[in-house]
């Protein structure tokens, strides 16, 4: 082979080898670029996929309300009535009886601090009243009220509030995240427009001696009586003693009357004794049961009274106050 053709052969060889190097480099670059969305972790048969409700979730769920420096720690989970218990086990019943629609939850972590995270639960309860019910019936005793929305409080590591038809819980992994959680709550309330339904009964409780934040809506099986549902209760401090007032708006005066009567009957059947009542409140009935007094009366379509009062005189004062407030409002 002559020198010239050898030279050109070498030349071609170098070009080819450089092409091969180029291909290798291209392949190297190519493998770096891939869409991580394709590679969700493959689940083993033993592990179950997170249940997902129908369709409305996306990966950015709730992220716009996060304070600076938080990132998702888990994927969005959603639950409907049929599988809520998979998430919150036995507590599901409380939500279900109050008209639960959907729960969406997700964990977020503070960047750089893997032990500082919280989980946000947004329960869609259908309406404000239902949301208030689950909110109030779970209210923690040591909770501190928060000002950014009407029904909101926080405990040492958690924040609870009602916004529109949603009941929101934010539960943190440590006590140091309160400020961030409050910021998150503020962002959520400010950022998510919603119709705020009223809970009218709250205004009907006398303000005097009312224990702050004690008004609670009990959905069903109230005071152990199956027929009694949708009852608001409120705690009062009077003369160092604690009293529980209750109030329930019924469909019409007839129902309120008959419920008052059947509740009284229920108490009598369970060992209660009739007490004579002064007639400062029309139709007031007092039942003495287990060393406490139960005041029951109906006014218009309201069923109201005092529950398990130790002091009959003070209880009557409170009952009268409640009656007067009702009478005033319903005139």
């Amino acid at each position: 082979m002559d020198a010239k053709s050898r030279k050109s052969e070498t030349c071609v060889g170098i070009v080819i080898l450089m092409t091969l190097a180029g291909i290798a480099f291209w392949v190297y670059l190519k493998q770096l670029l891939y869409d991580p969305a394709v590679f969700m972790p493959v689940l083993h048969p033993e592990e179950r996929a997170f249940p997902e409700a129908s369709g409305t979730l996306d990966a950015s769920w709730f992220q716009s309300y996060l304070p600076e420096g938080f990132n998702p720690l888990s994927s969005v989970e959603a639950f409907g009535p049929e599988n809520l218990s998979e998430k919150i086990d036995g507590k599901a019943e409380l939500y279900l009886s109050a008209g639960f629609v959907k729960l969406v939850s997700r964990r977020f972590v503070k960047s750089g601090q893997s032990d500082s995270w919280f989980e946000v639960y947004v329960y869609d309860m259908g309406n404000t009243r239902n949301a208030f019910s689950v909110y109030s019936s779970q209210r923690r005793a040591d909770g501190e009220d928060v000002d950014f929305t009407r029904f909101a409080y926080h405990s040492r590591n958690a924040l609870f509030f009602v916004h529109g038809r949603e009941y929101v819980e934010v539960v943190a992994s440590s006590e140091s995240l309160i400020e961030e959680m409050l910021a998150l709550g503020r962002n959520f309330v400010a950022g998510k427009r919603t119709e705020t339904g009223e809970v009218n009964e709250i205004a009907l409780f006398p303000k005097e001696a009312l224990e702050e934040g004690s008004i609670t809506l009990l959905s069903s099986d109230v005071f152990g009586y199956q027929e009694l549902n949708n009852v608001f209760i409120a705690h009062y401090l009077l003369g160092g003693k604690r009293f529980t007032l209750f109030l329930s708006a019924r469909k019409d005066p007839r129902e309120a009357d008959s419920l008052a009567a059947s509740y009284r009957q229920f108490l009598l059947e369970n060992g209660g004794k009739n007490q004579v009542a002064e007639n400062r409140i029309p139709g007031l009935k007092i039942v003495e049961i287990l060393d406490s007094y139960e005041f029951i009366f109906a006014h218009r379509h309201f069923l109201a009274g005092v529950h398990e009062a130790d002091d009959i005189a003070m209880a009557e004062e409170l009952a009268v106050m409640l009656y007067e407030t009702l009478a005033e409002v319903t005139q």
Binding site: E9, T10, G13, I16, L20
Partner: peptide, 26 residues
């Protein structure tokens, strides 16, 4: 310069074998 390089590469069939091994390995 090329004859220096051709010491290394020498023949086109060598390049071909390199190419074959390269693509087969790839």
């Amino acid at each position: 310069f090329f004859s220096a390089l051709s010491e290394i590469i020498m023949r086109i069939v060598t390049v071909r074998r390199i190419s074959q091994v390269f693509f087969l390995a790839l």
